[in-house]
Design a protein around this nucleic acid. Structure first.
Lengths: 231, 231
DNA sequence: CGCGGCTTTGATGTTCATCAAGTAAAGTGG
DNA sequence: CCACTTTACTTGATGAACATCAAAGCCGCG
């Protein structure tokens, strides 16, 4: 009954444990032959606001930003997604067109499965449906929590919060390459580029972080956490 | 095969068209006997952050606020929900406890169905599952859109935006009773009570709105829309 | 090599929070 | 029902936080 060719890359893929725990071997065979992977270089556009939604996409490798462009040339970054996160944003099941754009901020690999195939699975496999519901809810709630948390902090608190987010949630290291420009950082926390830079400089002068271009090292974690919590 | 008693209130309920379009008469019978309605007076707590989630709840009548309380005694209002909207917030399918609190801001009626019953329907009825997925996505996306829109505006823009939200989305009238206090308005847009009042006064002086206590009348719609759009 | 975008710092003005103080409204207990 | 307390509302004055404008150095890329 195992319909997956041994050569299929789905066999060793971590994403299986995320979404496809509850599917039969037969269903996995369908997914495996229907799926295709796309690679993107840093800076490449993966999804453009207004595009028709055809595929269910999630991130296998890399890092992406989900954002919205305004009439003028300013943007708001909604969230940063890491491997195992949705790419397709939340409107996959509720609209035929994307509400937001997605761009790779590191070299990335995206796994795509036709939305029709996924909808077929949801229709025929109740456990899969419940699992997807749960995953969608978590993804939404994370974004809402991010926006609420940022909304009640001011500049320094927001900066500290996002630095900790990168350090703990994305890289799990005290030293890391900032994957976004100062401008993008500003677009993520809703402040100006200049003030992001100023806050960085202050944190450096106060010996809370070390900065070398895009490389950030957290040298006073406790203080950074305090600034994030109180500020 | 019609298992709904003619006396059952589900028969004439608008909520049926929202969630239960795709269920069989038999399934509707199950829902009908499992559901129960709860009434709340203005100011009553419907859900408290941290409570165990037992029911799938949506608003039949009234108006509610979904909010989060901080360690100190300040709150952030996440959104205002009107009839046909979710009450249970988004974590129903992803966590066993509520992340947010819900309070009635007008006399309200909530329809409750055991979460087990809903999960059973999702498992056995694929079309129902897809419909729930779609509704959950829309609810999430609306909240995210609200937070993003507010985030890029300043005081006057936020005030105008929310006034239009009440006028157009909730009441569909140019004159309405503001369902929230000045303090709650401030908690919704993330500014202080004093500045909300000041902005109201300015809009009144500029003859864009009339204010009489909680009664608001929009007398220059175009200008209010311009303020909302531009900032 | 030079252009454009990113980064950095400083100076200036706007927007907003905070503090203070007073009025109005609404609930509470005798 | 009235005195009392509390909560909501309102305005002004002040300072802090932040955006904007300006200028200069840096870097990558055609």
């Amino acid at each position: 009954m195992n319909n997956i060719p041994l050569s299929c890359s789905c066999n060793g893929c971590l994403l299986r444990t995320l979404f496809f725990e509850n599917v039969t071997q037969e269903e996995l065979g369908i997914i495996c032959s229907a799926k295709f992977e796309l690679s993107y270089k840093k800076g490449d556009t993966i999804v453009r606001e207004g595009d028709t939604i055809a595929n269910f996409m999630y991130l296998k490798e890399g890092l992406i930003k989900i954002f919205k462009t305004d009439n003028d040339n300013s943007s708001q970054i909604i969230s940063i997604a890491k491997p195992m996160d949705f790419v397709s944003t939340l409107t996959v099941f509720s609209d035929s067109h994307y509400h937001y754009s997605v761009t790779a901020i590191e070299d990335s690999t995206v796994c795509c499965i036709s939305l029709d195939v996924i909808k077929g699975l949801v229709t025929n496999n109740g456990k899969f449906a419940l699992n997807i519901l749960s995953k969608i809810s978590i993804a939404s709630d994370n974004i809402i929590k991010l926006r609420l948390d940022l909304g009640k902090k001011q500049l320094r608190g927001r900066i500290a919060y996002i630095l900790l987010y990168f350090s703990q949630y994305i890289y799990n290291k005290m030293e890391f390459e900032l994957p976004v420009s100062r401008k993008e950082f500003a677009e993520l926390i809703g402040m100006t580029t200049e003030n992001v830079i100023r806050a960085f400089s202050e944190l450096r002068k106060d010996k809370i972080i070390k900065i070398n271009g895009k490389t950030i090292e957290i040298i006073n974690f406790e203080m950074l956490k305090k600034i994030s919590d109180l500020g």
